[in-house]
Design a binder for these strands. Structure first.
Length: 659
RNA sequence: GCCACCCUAGCUCAGUGGUAGAGCAGCGGUUUCGUAAACCGCAGGUCGUGGGUUCAAAUCCCAUGGGUGGCUCCA
């Protein structure tokens, strides 16, 4: 005998005013959905974290109600709760978007609906009834949704006031539970996420059990924005951008220092872990990319390049070699194609978007012995990828970057061990950099791919095994692998919680095949190696963006562009400051002197704003004692300390972390 | 690429059809100072760019570049 938890709680006298839903076997069940009376049932109150999702989903319904009241004829589609709130996608008959003024109006209407204290009600209907209902309402998207509900599942409707939606639930008992509501932004979104489908108008919002909780969230969001790497990049003179090279950062001296130091840090590890670094060309003959499969699978992301002679008309009596430019630029307009058609393309080049093909060229350039394997090749080469406008973002999504990239050529037998070694390396680095929350995704075969299903089966299994060997939890990203092989992606979130892939390891049987790579085994026969693509920090640009946010611009002593700022109290201390600066620089310490015409307080403020780890005040006492009044960003005032001790302390902290 | 919004001095921003502004930074001077902003002065902008409407455009319209938040795509 199934019964709604609402009745059950009422019978037991547990139906308090702040009960949102119940928890049965760890599953959230709203008060409307009939269940078998369970042995154990916990109540979820308004302020519990698990109630948040229900509140947000119900708020999405109220928003859809408000939108349909204000914009008659608008169709509803889907409206789930998400990490930071909820959204609902709409199709307006006039295809007009919502603007900020509309949002304010919708929010006001939502307030009215909520104030009406409407009960949410659930009912189960047959597929035909549901279809008839939404047919009569002209909700064609909902009809598609109903059709997608698996046979045998209940089709439930949720109503509040006079508004109805087909919905799995769960929902709050009454609109009065929705007290902290804010609409945040609008966005275009494709129906079912397909670019070929019509674009819907999405409205994002967030909701909390109370106005107070909402305000706290909004404040926290403000604070997160203060550590946005784009803002800090400007404030700390780390990097800049220019319209003349969209999505391509210019690293300024301070930023370039941090960048190079990260590279040095990884390089030092390479030395100990059997990697050999190479430097490879930037621009390659198209033939390389045809062989690697990039031409076929990755061309739209590549920058093309060609010599001036490619633009010359082909002279009379000579046959053009290569591909006419007009055929290369497939997405060029007809006019452009016509113009390019007569130009020969003896030498079209692709600017490299990945290092792997050149490493294959290196591997294949010599007869290789099994004794050389695993061969670990590292490359910090600069990559260029043509990113569509609209997807780029600060340092985290750019058009030019370099990775701490490496490719391991090994025997199939060595592969699992190499994956394990990589995992050790990876976690040692992230631990040293004080990252603890790392999400792992196993990205599996995409639609557009090279190689056989057997190869993909083997590759995916090898990566999963590598994770299971360490007992690491992971999620599967269906179809998100690279075109040549599956990957493990290591994701870290930025200041406002957006995840970014940094490190990766990918198994690849395909490129060795395409490049016909071989090594001679102990049996004196030729064998095909396996290739592992791997990066620890990933794109250094992206890593730095995430890392700046992680440390809020306050780099540890070993990474800080300046480790110590010497601040003089008055002009008469300037000579001493410059003298000891030279002494410290000779010992490898990075020092700046602020001998400007500012008061001490002003100098301290300026140095602190730059997040310099140590401040050293020099005045009469310090000159007298050959000392520095030291102040640490972390430990505060340390008092007057002899010069030699300051040098010792900063030198020690300035060493690279040991792994 | 698609949707919305934004672009005013090096930076942060004010200015909604009628003579382009502030703070900070910069420069010059004064001050010589002990732990988060000394004082005075000067200079700095074809209001992203190009068209249009208007007697008059930073402001309204169109196009275009760049950025922001999403969608899609990806390190």
């Amino acid at each position: 005998m199934r019964i709604a938890p609402k009745e059950l709680l009422a019978q037991r006298g547990q139906l308090d005013k702040d009960v949102v839903a119940v928890l049965v076997d760890g599953k959230i069940v709203d008060l409307h959905t009939p269940i078998e009376p369970p042995a154990k049932m916990d109540v979820l109150r308004q302020d519990s974290a698990k109630a948040l999702e229900i509140i947000r989903h119900s708020t999405a319904h109220v928003m859809a109600d408000a939108v349909q009241k204000l914009f008659p004829g608008t169709q509803v589609t889907i409206g789930p709760a998400i990490d930071n709130g909820f959204f609902y996608d709409f199709a307006r008959p006039d295809h007009k978007p919502f603007n900020d003024a509309d949002l304010a109006q919708i929010e006001a209407k939502m307030g009215e609906i909520i104030a009406g204290n409407h009960d949410f009600r659930r009912e189960v209907v047959s597929r035909d009834e549901a279809k008839k209902l939404f047919q009569s309402m002209g909700e064609t998207f909902k009809l598609e949704i109903i059709d997608a509900i698996p046979e045998g599942d209940d089709i439930s409707l949720y109503r509040h006031g006079d508004w109805v939606d087909v919905c799995r639930g769960p929902h709050v008992p009454n609109t009065r539970f929705l007290q902290g509501v804010k609409l945040t932004s609008v966005a275009g979104a494709y129906w079912r996420g397909q670019e070929s489908n019509p674009m819907l108008q999405r409205i994002y919002g967030t909701a909390f059990p109370s106005k107070k909780a909402l305000d706290a969230y909004l404040k926290q969001l403000e604070e997160a924005k203060a550590r946005d790497h784009r803002k800090l990049g400007k404030e700390l003179d780390l990097f800049m951008m220019s319209d003349l090279a969209p999505a391509s950062p210019f690293f300024l001296p301070r930023g370039a220092f941090v960048y190079n130091t990260l590279v040095d840090f990884v390089r030092k590890q390479y030395q100990r872990r059997g990697y050999r670094e190479v430097i490879t060309p930037q621009i390659f003959d198209k033939a390389l990319w045809e062989r690697s499969g990039h031409w076929e699978n990755y061309r739209e992301n590549m920058f093309m390049s060609f010599g001036a002679d490619a633009l010359e008309e082909v002279p009379e009596g000579r046959t053009a070699r290569g591909t006419p430019l007009g055929e290369v630029f497939v997405s060029a307009g007809d006019k452009a194609k016509e113009k390019l058609a007569g130009s020969s393309l003896d030498y079209v080049c692709g600017c490299k978007a990945m290092n792997c093909p050149s490493h294959c060229v290196i591997f294949g350039a010599q007869r290789r012995s099994y004794r050389e394997l695993p061969l670990r090749i590292a490359d910090f080469g600069r990559l260029h990828r043509y990113e569509r406008s609209g997807v780029t973002h600060g340092l985290t999504r750019v058009r030019t970057f370099s990775q701490d990239d490496g490719h391991i050529f090994c025997t199939p037998e060595q592969m699992q061990d190499e994956i394990a070694k990589f995992m050790d390396f990876f976690y040692a680095v992230y631990k040293a950099l004080a990252f603890d929350k790392i999400e792992i995704r196993l990205a599996t075969r995409p639609e557009k791919r090279l190689g056989t299903d057997e190869m993909w089966d083997k590759s995916e299994a090898a990566l999963a095994k590598g994770l299971e060997a360490r007992g690491l939890p992971y999620v599967i990203s269906e179809g998100e692998g690279a075109f040549y092989g599956p990957k493990l992606e290591f994701h870290i979130t930025d200041a406002i919680g957006r995840p970014w892939q940094l490190g990766t390891i990918q198994v690849d049987y395909n490129l060795p095949e395409r490049f016909e790579l071989e090594y001679i085994g102990a049996d004196n026969a030729a064998h095909r190696p396996v290739m592992l693509h791997r990066a620890i920090l990933g794109s250094l640009e992206r890593f730095l963006g995430v890392y700046i946010e992680h440390v809020a611009g306050a780099f540890p002593v070993w990474l800080a562009p300046e480790q110590l700022a010497l601040l003089t109290v008055a002009d008469r201390h300037n000579d001493y400051a410059h003298e000891i600066r030279a002494e410290m620089e000779a010992k490898g310490i990075r020092v700046i002197v602020d001998d400007s015409n500012e008061k001490l307080g002003g100098k301290i403020r300026a140095a602190r704003n730059l997040r310099i780890p140590y401040l050293g005040v020099v005045g009469d006492k310090e000159v007298e004692a050959r000392a520095v009044a030291l102040r640490s960003r972390i430990d505060g005032e340390l008092g007057s300390i002899p010069l030699a001790d300051v040098i010792a302390r900063i030198s020690k902290e300035g060493e690279f972390p040991t792994l």
